[in-house]
Design a binder for these strands. Structure first.
Length: 607
RNA sequence: GCGUUGAUGGUCUAGCGGCUAUGACUUGGGCCUUCCAAGCCCAAAACCCGGGUUCAAAUCCCGGUCGGCGCACCA
């Protein structure tokens, strides 16, 4: 059993992840988040909001998951989010049609399926596997299609990413932020891709959750106002050059930007922010790196792109976040398709006096000559250069027709005007998170099997002599019989643990369960996620809570009734302290949210 | 999508033509129990779906679904 299998077995058993539609035999590429999984995922998202919405100030928006065709024509998904496939008629193997013709011609990637079919036929390209003939090439689009409204309706697509919503709402967002760069917006939600062969559990899904942030910045200024915050933070970078050597290296954000490894400050800041977030939710820093996209891997319009990758037991390095400088590509694309200019007016520090050559068509003369076309002629004149306009007979082209305008119908002037700003198409910096993959990464990195006897000795639980003896005994047993007591524990960060506190009466008796329930009420008032469990021995219940990653257990015993104190037990160290019931909710809140050290939350206690 | 391999209680598994389907853990109820899963009693719980072969199918054959792996794919 590898770690993936173990994690999945636990995830299934404990209500984190289930195959969807299991009752009906299931369907590939879909997973249900069970009660604990759903809670864990929501807390990951909530932590993400704390970073991006609350700290960075990029407000969250919510757009439909169904989009109309124009949106995805502009984004390139209708044309480009598909692959031309071609199957061998003999052995049924499928190939990328454009890859097949690459040797025969250039720019194969731009050909349509029909053209590719033609090229394959003309050049008699055969199956590289068996030499069989190919069938027609066809486009396989990764977007789910649907129809909006009844009848012929309107073509709609399930969005393949949340990002387009922020681009489509660009003007509204700009106005909301009072047209002042930089600004940004985020969206957390479902996206859909009709993957050909989804696999690897939750790593590749047909319906998945993204958290995306689009930061609109002035293209002339990619310094970050808060750069110092992370400037000296050391990151593990796997740059283009590093990949040539197959070596990642550690470098501070400041150095990386200075050395040009990372393109600019805004990108550097966001990579560091991602690092911060992932560490906070429980990704193991030792299994995290930032890999730069290679030149041929990067979208043609992108300036620089880095993926956060985590190391997994079975799948190796897996991409979980992409952070890219997408330039003005998306806004320009939507501007073109929607025929609406998308820009932000940026004021200069000082207004500039600009002298320019201005064309003033004389409509009184143009009108009678060109009649209905006069307006178009006047517009065309405005676009001509000074040189062309200074000729006696000025030639303009209107609707493909060449017309001649006599120079006396056109006036010129040199004007000096005050210009106080200009229109700028912002560049977009896009951190894009795959929440489901992060979820899996957290599960795998949190998973641990521990030797209990050893653990007990280490943590000084029980008298030290006794513990050492037991540890020895445990070792000997282990060597001879191969059977050690293993503790299965999920070391979830308390920021995301789906259960934060378990309250346990030492024995299943009313005089203990009543005070336990009173404590639960107090904890819930502090909005802590609390479990109550009185079934089985106390040890069994500690183990149950270890398995679902509950950071702290509170145990009510007979001393509680006498002196008003309870035991708090720490999941990771298995150590215990004694603290008063009065104010217990504040102590736990501090432990969970304020990172207060366990040792200082109460009096150390051994049984 | 192609190939290959598998599918038995919640989980892991035994059985591989002749069962009322094995066992462990888990779970529920009760007893016991003063801090790290192990005591006692009781209980619940499974042959992926659809065809076929056979007197008889969890077991053999075919198709499907789902999972693993390889190839292809992963803007």
């Amino acid at each position: 059993m590898d770690k993936y299998e173990k994690v999945f077995e636990l995830a299934k058993r404990r209500g984190f992840l289930w195959n969807s539609f299991e009752l009906y035999g299931g369907s590939r590429g879909f997973y249900d988040y069970g009660p604990l999984g759903s809670t864990l995922k929501r807390r990951i998202e909530q932590t993400w909001r704390e970073f991006y919405v609350i700290q960075e100030g990029f407000m969250e928006i919510e757009c439909p998951t169904i989009g109309i065709e124009d949106v995805f024509i502009a984004s390139g998904h209708v044309g480009g989010f598909s692959d031309p496939l071609c199957e061998c008629m003999n052995c049924k193997e499928a190939f990328r049609a454009d890859h097949l013709v690459e040797n025969v011609m250039e720019a194969a990637g731009t050909l349509s399926a029909e053209d590719l079919t033609k090229v394959i036929k003309e050049n008699d390209i055969r199956c590289p596997e068996c030499g069989g003939e190919f069938g027609d090439a066809y486009e396989f689009n990764l977007m789910f299609k649907t129809t909006i409204g009844p009848g012929t309706g309107r073509q709609g697509y399930l969005r393949p990413e949340t990002a387009q919503g922020m681009f489509v709402d660009f003007q509204r967002l700009s106005r909301f932020y009072r047209d002042k760069l930089p600004f940004g917006a985020v969206q957390i939600g479902k996206s859909y891709r009709n993957e050909i062969a989804p696999r690897q559990g939750v790593i590749r899904l047909r319906e998945f959750t993204q958290a995306e942030c689009e930061i609109f910045v002035d293209p002339r200024n990619k310094k970050h106002p808060n750069f110092e915050r992370f400037a000296d933070k050391e990151l593990v970078l796997y740059s283009q050059k590093g990949q040539e050597k197959g070596e990642s290296f550690r470098m501070t954000v400041r150095e990386a930007v200075k050395a040009g490894v990372i393109a600019h400050e805004v990108l550097g800041y966001n990579i560091a922010l991602t690092n911060e977030f992932l560490t906070k939710v429980g990704i193991d820093p030792a299994k995290l790196r930032f890999r730069q996209h290679l030149k041929d891997e990067m979208a043609h319009y992108a300036i620089d792109c880095w993926d956060a990758e985590i190391e997994t037991d079975r799948f190796g390095w897996v991409e979980i976040v992409g952070i890219a400088d997408r330039t003005d590509y998306d806004l320009k694309a939507h501007a073109r398709v929607s025929k609406t200019e998308l820009y932000v007016y940026v004021e200069y520090d000082e207004p500039k006096m600009v002298t320019r050559f201005v064309v003033k068509p004389n409509m009184g003369k143009l009108g009678p000559v060109f009649k209905g076309k006069a307006k178009a002629v006047a517009d065309a004149l405005k676009h001509l250069s000074e040189e062309e306009l200074s000729k006696d007979e000025i030639k303009v082209t209107v609707d493909g027709e060449e017309l001649t305008v006599s120079s006396d119908a056109v006036g010129f002037a040199e004007e000096t005007v005050k210009v106080s700003g200009e229109n700028v198409i912002p560049h977009v910096i896009e951190p894009s998170y795959g929440i489901d993959r992060i979820f899996y990464g957290i599960m795998e990195h949190a998973y641990d099997e521990e030797n209990v006897a050893q653990k007990v000795a280490e943590s000084g639980l029980k008298g030290s002599e006794e513990a050492e003896k037991e540890a020895e005994a445990g070792k000997n047993e282990g060597e001879t019989e191969g059977e050690e007591e293993a503790r299965l524990v999920m070391h979830f960060a308390s920021a995301v643990a789906p259960v934060q506190v378990a309250v346990l009466p030492l024995l299943t008796r009313k005089e203990l369960s009543d005070p336990a329930k009173n404590i639960i009420v107090k904890l819930r008032e502090k909005t802590l996620l609390v479990n109550y469990d009185d079934s089985g021995t106390i040890g069994r219940r500690y183990r149950r809570n270890d398995e679902i990653g509950t950071p702290y257990c509170v145990t009510v015993d007979y001393d509680t009734l006498e002196d008003g104190t309870v035991t708090i037990r720490d999941r990771d160290s298995m150590r215990q302290i004694r603290a008063p019931v009065k104010g217990i909710e504040n102590v736990l809140y501090e432990l969970i949210y304020r990172g207060r050290a366990f040792e200082f939350a109460g009096k150390p206690f051994n049984f």
